[in-house]
C-alpha cells in the first residue's frame, strides 16, 4: 500500500516536467538526428556524414575547433590552478569577495564581454596604440579575425568555470593534512603533487569539462572575433543552417557537435572516478 502510494507520488511529481522535456527538448533533438540522415532527395542516407568527413573544409574546421578547445582549457588551467590555490586558502570574507568577482563575468552576456576585445585588439585599439606609441611597430597590426583573438576572448569567457570548481575542491583540503605532510619532511613540490593535485582532481576535471565544452560550442565570440575565414563548428553550423538554409547539412554539424561534447564529457567523467 505504502509502496503503491509512493509510486503515485513520484509520478505526480516527475511527470509534468518529464512531459515538458520530452516534448520540447528530446523530440526536437530526435527530429534533428533524423534530419541529419536525410538529403533533399533521399530519406535515409549517410551522405551528409560522408560529405562532412571527406570535405577538406569541414575537416579543417573540426580540428581547429578541437585544437582551440584544448588550448583554451590548457590556458585556463595554467592561470586558474595556482590562483585558485591561493584563493582557497584565504580567510572566508576575502575569499567570498574574490569569488563574487569571479562570478561577475558569468553574469554578463557574452556580447558585452566579447565587445571589449574589439576595443583592445582593434586597429585603433589599446594594443596597437601602445605599440605605436613606443615605436615598436610602424602601422597597426591585424589582431582581430585571427585564431588568437578567439582564444583570448574565450579564455576570458570561461576562466570562471575553471576557477569555481577548483576553489571549491581545494577548500576541502584540510590544512592539517598539508601541515602533517610538511612535518613529516615532505617538501613543497611533494606536498603539491602528492596531496594538492590528487585532492583537487575532481575540481580540475569538472572545470576542464566545462571549459572545453564551452569553447567547442561557443558562438558569439568566434562570430565576432573570428570573422568568416576562421570558422569553428558553431559558426559553420550557423552558416549552414541560416545563411545557406541547408537544414540537413546543418543537422549533420549539430550532431557532430553533440557527439564531440558528449564523448569528451564521458571521457572526463571516467577520469573522475
Amino acid at each position: 500500500m505504502r509502496r503503491l502510494n509512493q509510486n503515485r507520488t513520484i509520478v505526480i511529481l516527475v511527470a509534468p516536467a518529464l512531459i515538458f522535456m520530452v516534448l520540447f527538448f528530446v523530440l526536437p533533438l530526435a527530429f534533428l538526428l533524423m534530419q541529419s540522415f536525410q538529403t533533399d532527395d533521399s530519406v535515409l542516407t549517410l551522405q551528409g556524414y560522408s560529405d562532412f568527413l571527406t570535405s577538406r573544409t569541414s575537416r579543417i574546421i573540426y580540428w581547429r575547433t578541437l585544437r582551440m578547445g584544448l588550448l583554451i582549457t590548457g590556458i585556463c588551467t595554467l592561470i586558474a590552478y595556482p590562483a585558485s590555490f591561493v584563493i582557497a586558502r584565504m580567510p572566508t570574507r576575502r575569499r567570498t569577495f574574490l569569488l563574487s568577482l569571479v562570478i561577475l563575468p558569468l553574469m554578463t552576456n557574452a556580447i558585452a564581454r566579447t565587445y571589449a576585445w574589439l576595443i583592445i585588439l582593434g586597429r585603433q585599439g589599446i594594443i596597437n596604440e601602445s605599440l605605436q606609441f613606443f615605436n615598436l611597430i610602424d602601422s597597426p597590426l591585424r589582431l582581430i579575425f585571427t585564431e588568437n583573438a578567439i582564444v583570448l576572448g574565450l579564455t576570458q569567457l570561461f576562466l570562471p568555470l575553471m576557477v569555481l570548481p577548483l576553489v571549491s575542491s581545494m577548500e576541502n583540503i584540510p590544512e592539517d593534512v598539508v601541515e602533517a605532510a610538511r612535518s613529516l619532511g615532505a617538501n613543497r613540490l611533494m606536498v603539491f603533487f602528492r596531496i594538492i593535485v590528487p585532492m583537487s582532481m575532481d575540481g580540475l576535471v569538472l572545470g576542464a569539462t566545462l571549459v572545453f565544452t564551452g569553447s567547442v560550442t561557443a558562438y558569439v565570440t568566434p562570430a565576432i572575433l573570428g570573422g568568416t575565414r576562421t570558422l569553428l563548428l558553431s559558426t559553420l553550423l550557423y552558416q549552414r543552417a541560416v545563411t545557406l538554409a541547408d537544414l540537413n547539412r546543418g543537422a549533420v554539424v549539430a550532431v557532430v557537435m553533440i557527439l564531440t561534447t558528449l564523448s569528451v564529457n564521458l571521457l572526463l567523467r571516467l577520469l573522475r572516478r
Binding site: L18, M21, P28, L29, F31, L32, T217, A254, I258
Partner: peptide, 26 residues
C-alpha cells in the same frame, strides 16, 4: 531522470535552438 534534466547543459545551446526551430515549424 537526473541526466535528462541536466542534459540542456551538455547539449550546445546552438544545437538546442536549431533543433527547436526545425521542430516548431512542423
Amino acid at each position: 531522470v537526473e541526466t535528462l534534466f541536466s542534459a540542456p547543459i551538455l547539449v550546445p545551446g546552438l544545437v538546442i535552438g536549431f533543433s527547436m526551430l526545425n521542430f516548431f515549424v512542423l
